[in-house]
């Protein structure tokens, strides 16, 4: 179902504008704050941060073991700014295990490494179904996971944030870390795409 079937965005945008204009009247809001938000989430944080982590883990086995043991500490060296993750747990896809991340109660998501979540991650369908029928949900994404693989779903119900370390592409062995990072998709780090 689309979340906008019965309600054009104008309904919410008018309500937001009404609240904003009243707060402006009362001197309680900074009008420039909206532009700052747009710059922050368009330019400073996004899945490019997670992609750099993944590519480094593929190239550097020592970093990879540190990342899987303590994701929060391992990513300190990247000095990402904006959007904190208090505790990051990185879960590894292997030939035996496929991981996929969700937040059934809300939309908890590792902003610092992946940016703001896509709309489908926050929609009822994904949140409802992926803990119950993840293989069928993955089919919606064009991904087939063999029945012999263990499928681990991570429901981010507290403040710990999860990110998937995808399996590297089979033809990427001779590529540089930078070239590999460009091939890592946001969806692969949520666990709904393969590379």
């Amino acid at each position: 179902m689309s979340e906008h079937d019965d309600h054009p965005a104008s309904q919410q945008s008018i309500r937001a504008e009404a609240i904003e204009s009243l707060l402006i009247d009362k001197g309680l809001i900074d009008e420039a704050a909206v532009d700052e938000v747009i710059v922050q989430f368009n330019e400073r944080v996004g899945p490019m941060n997670g992609a750099r982590i993944v590519a480094k883990a593929w190239k550097d086995p020592d970093f990879k073991s540190r990342l899987l043991a303590d994701g929060t500490r391992a990513i300190e060296e990247f000095e990402f700014t904006g959007g904190q993750v208090e505790k990051l747990v990185v879960v590894e896809n292997t030939p035996e295990v496929h991981n996929v991340v969700v937040c059934t109660l809300w939309s908890c998501y590792p902003w610092a490494v992946l940016g703001l979540p896509p709309k489908w991650y926050k929609d009822p369908s994904y949140r409802a179904r992926v803990v119950r029928e993840p293989r069928r949900v993955l089919e919606d994404f064009g991904v087939e996971i063999s029945a012999s693989k263990e499928l681990r779903v991570w429901d981010s119900s507290a403040e710990i944030r999860y990110m998937v370390l995808p399996e590297p592409p089979s033809d990427g062995e001779n590529q540089s870390e930078e070239e590999l990072a460009a091939r890592v998709s946001r969806d692969a780090m949520i666990g709904v795409a393969l590379l």
Binding site: I19, D30, A33, V34, F41, N42, K119
Partner: peptide, 18 residues
């Protein structure tokens, strides 16, 4: 998909700050 579908979505962050 764009980060924000309209300026009002970013505005909600500013309302939270206020």
């Amino acid at each position: 998909e764009p980060v924000f579908h309209g300026r009002w979505e970013a505005k909600v962050f500013a309302l939270l700050g206020a």
